[in-house]
Design a protein around this nucleic acid. Structure first.
Lengths: 250, 250
DNA sequence: GCACTAACCATACGACCTAAACTATATGGC
DNA sequence: GCCATATAGTTTAGGTCGTATGGTTAGTGC
């Protein structure tokens, strides 16, 4: 009967340590993590340094190790902190499809607020309280379907991975166009033209056709990133619909 | 009429520099990148160091800067190198579905050979010759469909992102169980039980139900990771099928 | 006031990436 | 054959960062 919880999990869930002995702590895990998140929001992931965090808090970097096992662990804590709790359960009508769509939109919005978040190294399955909160909301949206637990978890994994990947790509493209005052369509043009010169139409006929198709030349929608995101999301949701129908038949 | 190509792209595509002047080079980009890949295969991404690469090649770390602009750029080159060219075009029957499935399987196999590959930071849209090769194969599988280019690119992005995310998760789970001689089902048990103790059934009823469902207790398939992968893949392919039908109707 | 415990700090070390200046080795024109 | 030139590679050094170690400070409870 192991009642114990790994120390990393304990800090993620902020389990109180219980001890009135010794010198009282001037900080707590929360303040450390919040300072780190604020720093990442300002300077990016690469700008997060134990020294700078400590400076911000008026302590030395070594004292942070009283609250965090290592920088790697700190990154995990930052991830859960920045993700925050999932929005309230919709419970409204619209069924699973609207529920999943809202969920994905909300998660995307979180990534937009913290551009570094999708770039955090994955450290395993969702384990923090906020990650669990999002998990709960997603599963809730699927509650009235005939899917078994394995399928629900698969959908959750797929969907969160998709949002993460899409956000990551958006951020990277945005980073690529920093300095040169180009917006998204211009970057796509640049990309398409540079590669059109490199791609041999004989070796890669499909790609060559793509780059001469004019897809990267037209300035179509007013928010192309949103449109791209919606395309993939709808495609996934169509797949979910198929799975739900199949489960209902069984 | 800019005939020029950014220097990063030039190195990715190994554009020859043309110059018989000066001291002849003892190395070339290829050898540097291959040594780096071999090192990553052995020691992981964190074990890749300019010093170690140089050592392996019998030079000093600074000389590597003759071939690579920075370590960041080296990572990009490593990514394309390790990905390698896509497998030969199937051209067989089975249509787009078999084509995409084979493609995804092959990409997954590449990630299995280079566990660090899915962990590389994304640096933009596919740009290297090998990435383009995989792009070409994927587009080829969709050739006989009525999808427009935008949809095809969306599917490519979605699919490659999915494979990447799934591989990343597999690697991280495998890493989590290093040291303690546990296999996948045991790790899932450990995960399920640890979280079952932390998750409040009132706040997170769905998750609580999941963790008491026994999903993480049973040792079901003989290759659970493969089964999970297939579930997501089939779901995506079902979504693609829907999109193809819709495009054909239009 | 004394043992004990926990929080915090000063110091130091070892990686690592890379800028700058210098040396080595080839080519091509005279 | 020699020199200007251009490219390759080395030396040296600086700066940043994570963190191991050991000492110091500030509280609690007997």
């Amino acid at each position: 009967m192991g009642d114990e919880v790994p120390v990393g999990l304990a800090r993620l869930w902020r389990l109180p340590a219980e001890s009135r002995l010794g010198r009282p702590a001037a900080l707590d895990v929360d303040r450390v993590v919040r300072a780190a998140v604020a720093l990442a929001d300002r300077d990016g992931l690469g700008g997060v340094t134990l020294g700078k965090i400590a400076n911000e808090l008026g302590v030395t970097s070594m004292s942070l190790y009283r609250y965090v096992g290592s920088k790697e662990e700190l990154l995990v804590l930052m991830g859960d902190e920045a993700t925050g709790p999932a929005p309230e359960l919709p419970a409204g009508p619209g069924g699973w499809r609207a529920g999943l769509r809202d969920w994905a939109y909300a998660l995307r919005a979180v990534h937009a607020r913290h551009a570094w978040l999708p770039h955090l190294p994955i450290s395993g399955p969702p384990s923090g309280p906020n990650a669990i909160s999002w998990m709960n909301t997603c599963l809730h949206a699927l509650r009235d379907t005939a899917l078994d637990w394995g399928a629900k978890v698969g959908i959750l994994t797929l969907l969160s991975g998709y949002v993460r990947g899409a956000s990551q790509l958006n951020v990277d493209m945005a980073e690529g166009r920093r300095g040169s005052g180009l917006d998204q369509p211009q970057v796509e043009q640049e990309y398409g033209r540079a590669l059109a010169r490199l791609v041999d139409a004989e070796r890669f006929p499909e790609v060559a056709a793509l780059f001469t198709s004019g897809l990267f030349e037209q300035p179509p929608a007013d928010d192309p990133e949103q449109a791209d995101f919606d395309f993939g999301l709808d495609l996934i949701l169509d797949g979910v619909a198929t799975a739900i129908r199949a489960a209902a038949r069984a």
